[in-house]
Every structure is written in structure tokens, then in C-alpha cells.
Design a protein around this nucleic acid. Structure first.
Lengths: 194, 194
DNA sequence: TTTTGTTGATTGATCCGTCAATAAAAAATA
DNA sequence: TATTTTTTATTGACGGATCAATCAACAAAA
């Protein structure tokens, strides 16, 4: 069976399996065997390609972050007006690709794990900073810097909060409602300004 | 050594030890031995009083929720005006007793665990509903019901989001800043109304 | 023959939950 | 009051299960 050039395929399969396993369990408490099984390989192979379990989890988080980054970049690319840029950033976070039960569960679980893992913590800080600066890229065209800063902070917190409440299957029932809540906040905040 | 009437003391000590252990580890991945050790007893005794680990964790969450409930009740008691009631509810969530690293870490960890445990999920839904209705107890005196509903939803999400960002030690540096953000949202939202 | 892919079996560690044993206090009995 | 018995408090030791990580071995491609 061994065909050459399997490595990238296996890595991808294992990362996808990790996401779906985390999504189903709702936490990082998934075994290497469980993940490997979902990917259709033995647990020994998972270790072969990723070393320790930590590194597979880290690679998985990196993958999720990378997807979010490319999606955001694309969305910002086709938004020129400041106000549009803010909405674009918000929309990406609640897009079909991001606002999925699996991905939401993974985010939440990784937030907790970040308490233990310095590497994961660093990764999540990068995300937080990037989200902030993406929001600012629009907001600074509308508000004075200090106020834009606070609105960006609140918007980011709002997005995180909506993710949590979605994970609990309480509160916001769908993406559209979540977006409406954030947009409503932004709208009142910007109108009050002028 | 055995003195009679130890049960309530041991229960309390074990729950406190659980909170501090979770706070330090940053997750529910704490062993019964670790918890028992912190409480100054053997792990066998922890099992004696609480049965399985799940039940100790559940009792701990119940304890945290109960504290929040009494604090909120007290705060609402001395607030008569609708607007004051809203602020009182917000303030409690960021009070010294609640907005502590240990408690915040516990909340976050329990949110994740709720994905697995139906009992925990039920408990957190009770909290979510209660927070919503407490906010509504003030908001309905200011806004029409449907709009009050949405503001309450957004406020709750904002609070949760600020908790997360605090757990990551990123974003909001302290309680005062967090309160200011929420109050700013409420203020603009209520001013826009009129 | 070297590299790449793959796994079954195993090891070692961790940890939950149980149980028998011990000891002191309280209650019951003589 | 003196004793036995029961209840409450407590632990060390252990069984059993789970799992991460390793390794030797095998197979196919280069």
C-alpha cells in the first residue's frame, strides 16, 4: 500500500480529524487513537508525523487560524470604504466556514488549553491582535483613534461572547442574528458620534 | 483525631480547593489527589464526601453560581430606578468577588466541560437565563420589550466576551475598564432611543 | 539498498474509585 | 456508671482502566 507523497495528505487528514473529533467531544479530551481512527490510520502514524499530541493540537489551531486569516484578507480586499471594512471583518467571523459547531467548540477548547500551553497562548494572542487591527483598519477612518480603540475592543469582546453563547446553544440561534447584534452596536455607536 | 461534625467543613474546604486548583491549572484537568491535598485531606476522603469527581466539580460550579446569585440579589435590592438596576447587575459581574483570575478560569473551564456534561449544561443555562432576566428587570422600564431583549442579549454576550479576554490576559486590563465598556454601550444605546 | 509509509504490540505513567482497617466520638445497653 | 455497639471520620494500599509514546518489523517505492 505505501505510496510515496503521503505526508501532506496524512497531515491534512489528521488535522481535519482532530477538528471533527474536538467538535464532537466538545473538548480537547480526545485520544490520539480516536483522531487517527477518524483519519483512517493508526495512532502510531499520527505520532510519526506530528510527534507529541501537543504538536498535533497546535498544528490544528494554526490551521484554523490560517483559514480565518485568508478569509479575512479576501473579505477586506473587496471592501474599500471604512464602514464596509468593519462589516467585512465582522461578517467573516460569522461566515459559514467559521461559525460552525466544530470550529466554535475548537475555539472554546483552545482558549482553555491556552491557560496551560504557552505556545497556544502566543497563537491566540496573535489572533486577538490581528482581529483588533483588522477592525481598526476600518474604524480609524470613522472615529478618532482612542474611541476607535474602544469600539474595536468592545466589538471583539462581543464576537467572542457570541461564540460562547453559541457553543452553549443558548442565546443567539444563528449567524444572521449574531451579525445583526454586532452591526446594531456599531450603528448606534457610529450614529451617536455624529 | 476524628471530631464529629466535620462534613460541612470538609465539603467547604474541598470546594475551595477545587476552585483554587482549577484557577492555577486553568482547566478542569486537576486530579482528585491534587484537590484533596490542597484541602489537607486524602483523596479517599474527597470520594467519601462527594462520590465521583463529576459531582465535586458540579458542586463547585453550583457554589460559584450561588455566590453570584446572592451578590446579585443584594445589589438589586438597593437599586430602585430601572437604569440603576441594569448597572447593578453589570457591576456585580465585575466585582472583586467575581472578576478574579480563579473564578474566571473556572467559568471558562466549566463552559467547555458543559459540552460533555448534561448536568453542567443545565446549570449554565440557568445562569444564562437568570442573567438575562436580571438585566431585563431594569431594561423593560426603559425600552420596549423587543428592544430590551436584544440589548440584554448583547450585554450578556459582552460580559462573557470580556471574561474570556480577561482569562487570556489580553485586552481589558481590569474590572473598571470592563465596566466602562459595558456602560458605554448601554449609554449610547439608551441615548439613541430618545 | 536506501528511503518512505505503516502498524501491532508493548511499556510506563497517570489516575479514578474502592475497600479494608483504624480510631475516636456518641449512643445504647447492662 | 461501666460496658458494648454503632456511627462518623479518615487513610494507605490497590485494582483496573486509559492513554501517550516508542519500537521493532514489514512492505513498497526509488
Amino acid at each position: 500500500m505505501p505510496k510515496v507523497g503521503m505526508e501532506p495528505l496524512r497531515r491534512k487528514a489528521l488535522i481535519d480529524a482532530t477538528i471533527s473529533a474536538i467538535g464532537e467531544r466538545g473538548s480537547l479530551d480526545v485520544t490520539m487513537s480516536e483522531i487517527a481512527g477518524r483519519a483512517g490510520v493508526s495512532s502510531a502514524l499520527a505520532h510519526h508525523y506530528f510527534g507529541a499530541k501537543d504538536e498535533l493540537l497546535l498544528a490544528t489551531m494554526r490551521h484554523i487560524l490560517a483559514e480565518l486569516t485568508t478569509d479575512t484578507r479576501r473579505a477586506l480586499h473587496s471592501a474599500s470604504l471604512p464602514r464596509e471594512r468593519v462589516s467585512a471583518v465582522v461578517a467573516v467571523n460569522f461566515s459559514d466556514a467559521q461559525f460552525q459547531p466544530e470550529i466554535i467548540a475548537a475555539w472554546l477548547a483552545f482558549y482553555v488549553e491556552a491557560q496551560k500551553s504557552a505556545a497556544l497562548r502566543r497563537l491566540l494572542k496573535v489572533y486577538a491582535r490581528r482581529l483588533h487591527s483588522n477592525l481598526m483598519s476600518g474604524l480609524t477612518g470613522i472615529l478618532p483613534r482612542s474611541e476607535a480603540d474602544r469600539v474595536a475592543e468592545a466589538t471583539a469582546a462581543l464576537i467572542d461572547g457570541l461564540y460562547i453563547r453559541r457553543a452553549l446553544k443558548d442565546g443567539v440561534p444563528n449567524a444572521a442574528t449574531a451579525i445583526a447584534l454586532v452591526e446594531d452596536y456599531l450603528e448606534t455607536k457610529l450614529k451617536a458620534r455624529q
